[in-house]
């Protein structure tokens, strides 16, 4: 079984974002593997190492050359090879269209995407990719297992989970639970990652459906109203009669 993990390159989540017009000011920004994509790679590695029948793990990113260090992190974690589509990920549909070309050119049984990309928070690419490919898709995936060579997927539902069997090829959108701690690359992995193949593909023409035309900062919050630790009654009164929330 071959697994493709779609990896988005995002600013470290603690970044205090600043903008110049609609462009993120990238000075001082630390770039990371999108947290859910990192968990997806981790789970793919666990499956491969457990001898469940995973042959190869490939990562794919749509991005300009600046995303390569992040892709190398994915390789250092243990992915076998990487494919970069050499274009700005203009919007979700455009990005999914590029990834669809990557999928068509390969031979993948399972395609893993994350719940959302921690920059534009689109929550879109996974479902769009599966629709473009005509593949089955499962969202809100909290576990991926391979049992007797077949995929078994847990999907979160309200109050619990469903265990699904799904035909391959398949696109999943993974969330928390799929793996606990993201794999930390070891020194050996980092050394090996330098020599692993990272193929660059030219983008295909695709429509751009949405664009960000303005960034607006949220209104500054008014200062917190503090109550004395002895005045719990004061807090309850404020919640009842001022905020009207209880």
């Amino acid at each position: 079984m071959n697994i493709l993990v779609c990896v988005s390159n995002v600013p470290d989540t603690t970044t205090k974002v600043k903008f110049n017009g609609t462009q993120l000011v990238t000075e001082g920004v630390q770039w990371i593997v999108n947290p859910w994509d990192e968990l997806a790679i981790t789970r793919a590695l666990e499956l491969k190492e457990s001898g469940a029948g995973v042959d190869k793990i490939t990562i794919a990113t749509v991005g300009l050359v600046g995303v390569e260090p992040t892709m190398r992190k994915g390789l250092a974690m243990g992915a076998d090879d990487a494919i970069r589509v050499d274009s700005d990920p203009k919007d979700a549909f455009y990005t999914a269209s590029q990834l669809a070309e990557v999928v068509k050119a390969g031979n993948y049984d399972l395609i893993m995407t994350g719940f959302e990309s921690a920059d534009y928070n689109g929550i879109s690419v996974g479902a769009m990719l599966s629709e473009l490919m005509g593949y089955a898709s499962v969202g809100a995936v909290s576990a991926v297992n391979i049992i007797d060579g077949k995929l078994q997927i847990d999907r979160e539902i309200d109050g619990g989970k469903e265990v699904l069997s799904v035909e391959t090829p398949l696109v999943v959108s993974v969330q928390k639970g799929i793996a606990i701690d993201p794999r930390i690359p070891a020194m050996r992995g980092i050394m090996m990652a330098r020599r692993k193949p990272l193929k660059v593909l030219a983008p295909v023409d695709a429509d751009v459906y949405t664009e960000i035309v303005e960034i607006e900062l949220p209104k500054a919050k008014s200062a917190v109203k503090l109550f004395d630790a002895e005045d719990v009654a004061g807090l309850v009164d404020a919640l009842r009669n001022e905020a009207n929330v209880i």
Partner: peptide, 23 residues
């Protein structure tokens, strides 16, 4: 915008050739 809506909106957007804005 929940588990079900997230899983479906992208499919429907592609089918309808529609731009999708989530959340």
């Amino acid at each position: 915008q929940d588990n079900v809506g997230n899983a479906l909106a992208g499919h429907v957007a592609v089918k309808l050739k529609a731009g999708l804005v989530s959340a």
